[in-house]
Amino acid sequence: MATKKFGIVLDAKKCLNCKACTVACKFENTIHPGEDDYRIWVTELELKGTYPNISQEYQPSQCQHCENTPCASVCPTKATYKSPEGVVLIDYDKCILCKACMTACPYDARYENVHLHAIDKCTFCYQRQPEGREPACVETCPTRVRVFGDLNDPESEASKLLARNHTYQLKPERNTRPRLHYIK
């Protein structure tokens, strides 16, 4: 069996900016309220046009689980590492809080979790993997903006979506090869 490669395919055009995903993440991962304390965000992109010819889109995002991983390469203690499925994770016990990874991440995906005394970020809800459950942000979304799955399995819904649609990644110029694919 080929190794798994987790990723998320997003159809941001379906996003309602309802923030269900951001709140779900907070509870699933015990993240307290606070300005800088979040693993996931939904940006209101600039309104285009002037009244009455206007349009607006939203951009939900989180850690991109970069294949080429800027945050891991600068981490002096290997606190940041990759799981076999390519999920970028943090061993909180090893984190010295030097914040090099925060400064290195082109997506501003990381923050200092004061309760864990370590750097924190999206883990694709790795704790749910043993039970085979989808990440909290994926599961709770009213319009199913995100589809999570094994991109190495051509039969997964995510792979199919990826194959069927034109997609793009955020900041390709950073050469990070994100595992979040946005449908055009």
Partner: peptide, 22 residues
Amino acid sequence: EIGNPLRMVYMMISPNFKAPIF
């Protein structure tokens, strides 16, 4: 500056040779 200076032992136990901070 470093939030967890005591954990710096991990720079010896599990060093990342790629990391300039190491």
